[in-house]
C-alpha cells in the first residue's frame, strides 16, 4: 500500500506544483498550491509526522493560503499579461529544467545509497506530545526567538497597512 500512496500523492504534488507555475491566473495558482500542500500533508502522515501534517493543513493551507486568496480577491488582479516568449528560451529552457530535475533526482538516488526506507508506522515519534516536549525543552530558545519574529511581523504588517489610512 505504501508505494501506491506515495506514488499517487507524489504525482498529485508534482502535477499541481507544475500547475502553480503554468496557470495564468493567480487564483488558479493559489488553489493549485493548496492542493500541493494538502497532498504534502498526506505524505507527512506516511512519514509518521501526524502533528506536522495537521499543522501544515491548519497553518499553510488554512491560514497562509487563505491570506493569499484574500489579497488576490481584494486586488482583483486579472490574468498575467503574456509577453512574446523568445524561441531560444523555450527550446533550451524546458529541456534544461528537465535535465536539472533528472540530475537532482538521479544524484539523490545514487548519492545516498545507505538511506533506509519508509514504512507507515515505523516512526511514531511525530505526535503532538513528542513535538511539544522537544519544542519546550531542547528548542526553547528558537521558539522564543520565533515569537519575537512574529511580533515584529505583526507590527510591520500593521505599520504598512496604517500608512494606507493616513
Amino acid at each position: 500500500m505504501d508505494p501506491l500512496f506515495f506514488l499517487l500523492f507524489a504525482f498529485i504534488t508534482v502535477a499541481c506544483g507544475v500547475n502553480v507555475v503554468l496557470q495564468k491566473h493567480p487564483i488558479s495558482s493559489a488553489l493549485s498550491l493548496v492542493a500541493v500542500m494538502a497532498s504534502l500533508a498526506v505524505l507527512y502522515l506516511l512519514l509518521g509526522a501526524e502533528f506536522l501534517a495537521m499543522a501544515q493543513m491548519i497553518v499553510y493551507a488554512g491560514a497562509i493560503m487563505v491570506l493569499f486568496v484574500f489579497v488576490i480577491m481584494l486586488l482583483n488582479a486579472g490574468t498575467e499579461a503574456t509577453r512574446g516568449r523568445s524561441w531560444t528560451a523555450t527550446i533550451f529552457g524546458i529541456p534544461a529544467i528537465l535535465i536539472l530535475i533528472g540530475a537532482l533526482a538521479y544524484f539523490m538516488q545514487t548519492g545516498m545509497p545507505q538511506l533506509g526506507s519508509v514504512k507507515f508506522g515505523d516512526f511514531r515519534g511525530g505526535g503532538a506530545y513528542q513535538v511539544g516536549y522537544a519544542l519546550f525543552t531542547e528548542y526553547l530558545l528558537p521558539f522564543e526567538v520565533t515569537s519575537v519574529l512574529i511580533l515584529i511581523a505583526i507590527v510591520g504588517a500593521i505599520v504598512l497597512a496604517r500608512k494606507e489610512l493616513d
Partner: peptide
C-alpha cells in the same frame, strides 16, 4: 490528532465560500 483535523477541515471550508 482528531481535534486538529476538525480545525484543519473547518479552516479549509473558507475556500468554498471565498
Amino acid at each position: 490528532v482528531g481535534i486538529l483535523l476538525v480545525l484543519a477541515l473547518s479552516s479549509m471550508g473558507v475556500y468554498g465560500i471565498a
